[in-house]
Design a protein around this nucleic acid. Structure first.
Length: 573
RNA sequence: UCGGGGAUCGUCCAACGGCAGGACUCCAGAUUCUGGCUCUGGAUAUCUAGGUUCGAAUCCUAGUCCCCGAACCA
């Protein structure tokens, strides 16, 4: 895991999240404020369970919750919903805090854990029993399940449902004291076994689970269930608007029921929105975990992962992710956002900020025959043509250069602007060259070298006689170039909806990563630091790998290609 | 067959009884020392059927389709 180290900010840019765009959640909050409800306060929370890394779907929720708080002058808490010790891990707790901070949000001193409320939750549970709103059921899990009925048949009351509350209380205390085996008893709410909403058919509130909790250790052997713990945690923190995803919609009556039975400080309003789905991507914790466990990717921060850690290592900026979350909006319709929107916003952000450099990924040797051996010309190259204030740098030019193999074709197709025998092109920021001859490997017939001449009158890139060339190529001087490894990342899945079939893993794109080990980059890149972002001119946006890049071994990740309209033309018949 | 939710360009989001709009994608063109960026133009939508109304994406009625729900997961 790479530390939070945001190299992506340029000096004059602020990382302050922009004000949340209007959406139906904000409209509800605004209306509450207008009507003077909830004491005129806005207090939200982001409540992850620490059982996996955060992904871009969580970013939507984070932006919504923190964004609403910011927009209305309120607060947003970070709370770990850690009520299931068997799946949770401190590694996740650390990564989640790291990622939320990196995204640009601040919970200040309001970092909470549901596990810190275990005492209070337990005391409330005793109250529930005393007021005959909950009872201890001593049936097996199977019996309870069978009794619950199904969608079409009502449930049946448990034989223990009318157990005297004193008896339930005594049993519950013994559950807590560790006198029973796992599963021997559960605490259930006494609601309505015939409800059409299965969540109200006497849901389990507490279960016995002898598992070591990463925070509370072995203090507890009973743990509260989500429906019971979440609403009370919200109330204890004074949450006004409890925003969650659509699948909790029919849990809302239970959320409200619990709070109605107890003398909690307040009764937050649960509001549900549609979770993010992205084309060519999986966003379920289960599947992401499987990718990691099965080593189909290189960990949670593999640059192909939609995790915030993966996106960060890939070269995404927090600003781009936030802009994306704003742009997709918030609604109750479940849909699939086209990943090309994410890519568009990424390019938009990177185009504005990334310094331009030249790098040759698949080198083809070029000899400038009329350029003296050992001589060097230094040309001035702009760091960012759209931001001249970012200055320029000197790039060395000499007799032997490298250009991209893709930029030469012996038999050029129509509309070919690049190099071919007899053609003239510009080397970016340098000069015009013409290709006179080609050298081939006598065995393979592969083109191994281009023999060219330069026009000394075109120094800087424009011909003295005003003649135009259509093609401009990037290049590096062979003698001055640094070697680099470049990792070309592409979409992890080749199927638009990888969740479609029986096994999402068969849609993994076999070309999602290809490693190029013989790349040549301009000397300037020798001083680049892990995390630095660049545009390799004419190729795409790249970042120095956050964990493996070093001065002695340059490693760049391709964040995203530049749009390539030539590929379209070239691809046509 | 039960409960909850949702249906607007290919995709996402707007329009809150008064000209269906924006963004992405796609197509065409201009510009360009990045076949990038930028700019211009174009294509494409109100689930269906009735009703209310001067006027309906919006209100009413009846359908249709899609999503979620039967963990001692969250």
């Amino acid at each position: 895991m790479s530390a939070v180290d945001d190299k992506s900010k340029t000096g004059d840019e602020t990382s302050a999240p922009s004000i949340a765009a209007p959406n139906f959640v904000n409209e509800i909050i605004e209306e509450d404020l207008r009507a003077g409800r909830r004491g005129g306060q806005v207090h939200t929370r982001f409540p992850p369970e620490p059982n996996g890394y955060l992904h871009i779907g969580h970013a939507k929720s984070i932006c919504l919750n923190f964004g609403a708080a910011t927009k209305f002058g309120g607060l947003c808490n970070l709370r770990f919903d850690d009520t299931n010790p068997t799946t949770e891990d401190p590694e996740y707790v650390a990564s989640i805090q790291n990622d939320v901070r990196w995204l640009g949000f601040d919970w200040q001193d309001r970092l909470f854990y549901a596990s810190d409320y275990f005492d209070k939750l337990y005391a409330y549970a005793e109250q529930l029993i005393e007021s005959d709103k909950a009872y201890v059921d001593s049936q097996t899990q199977e019996q309870i399940a069978a009794e619950r009925g199904d969608f079409y048949r009502p449930g049946q009351d448990s034989p223990f449902r009318n157990r005297p509350s004193a008896e339930s209380l005594a049993l519950f205390r013994r559950m807590r004291a560790g006198e029973f085996d796992d599963g021997a008893h559960v605490l259930r709410a006494k609601i309505d076994m015939r409800s059409g909403n299965l969540n109200l058919r006497d849901p389990v509130l507490y279960r016995i689970k002898r598992a070591h909790h990463y925070r509370s250790g072995d203090t507890w052997c009973i743990y509260p269930m989500y429906d019971y713990a979440h609403c009370i945690s919200d109330a204890l923190e004074g949450i006004t608007h409890s925003v969650c995803t659509l699948e909790f919609e029919d849990h809302r009556p239970l959320y409200d029921w619990c709070l109605d039975q107890l003398p909690v400080p307040c009764h937050p309003q649960q509001i549900e929105f549609a979770r993010l789905n992205l084309s060519y991507t999986v966003l379920s914790k289960r599947k992401l975990l499987q990718l990691v466990d099965d080593k189909l990717v290189d960990g949670w921060d593999d640059p192909r992962m939609p995790t915030l850690a993966g996106l960060r290592r890939r070269g995404y900026t927090p600003e781009a992710i936030r802009a994306f979350c704003e742009r997709i909006g918030v609604s109750k319709r479940d849909g699939v956002v086209d990943v090309s929107l994410l890519e568009y916003i990424l390019r938009e952000d990177l185009n504005a900020r990334a310094a331009r450099v030249m790098a040759v990924l698949r080198p083809l040797r070029v000899v400038i025959e009329n350029f003296p051996e050992g001589a060097i010309e230094w040309f001035d190259a702009q760091n960012h043509p759209e931001h001249p204030e970012q200055g320029s740098r000197k790039v060395p030019f000499s007799r032997v250069l490298y250009i991209e193999q893709d930029d030469f074709r012996e038999e050029p197709p129509k509309k070919w602007f690049r190099l071919t025998r007899g053609a003239e092109v510009r080397l970016r920021y340098a000069c015009l060259i013409r290709c006179n001859d080609i050298v081939k490997d006598p065995q393979t017939g592969e083109v191994t070298e281009l023999r060219c001449t330069w026009d000394p009158q075109s120094r800087g890139g424009t011909a003295s006689d005003g003649r135009k060339v259509k093609g401009t190529l990037h290049w590096v001087s062979a003698a001055h170039a640094r070697d680099a490894e470049v990792r070309l990342y592409d979409r992890l899945f080749s199927q638009e909806n990888p969740n479609d079939g029986d096994d999402f893993r068969r849609f993994i794109n076999p070309a999602s990563l290809s490693v190029l080990r013989e790349c040549k980059v301009e000397p300037h890149l020798g001083t680049s630091q892990p995390g630095d972002l660049f545009q390799f001119e004419r190729l795409g946006y790249f970042c120095a790998d956050a964990s493996e890049h070093q001065a002695s071994k340059l490693i760049f990740n391709r964040t995203i290609e530049l749009r390539d309209s030539w590929a379209k033309i070239d691809g046509k018949p």
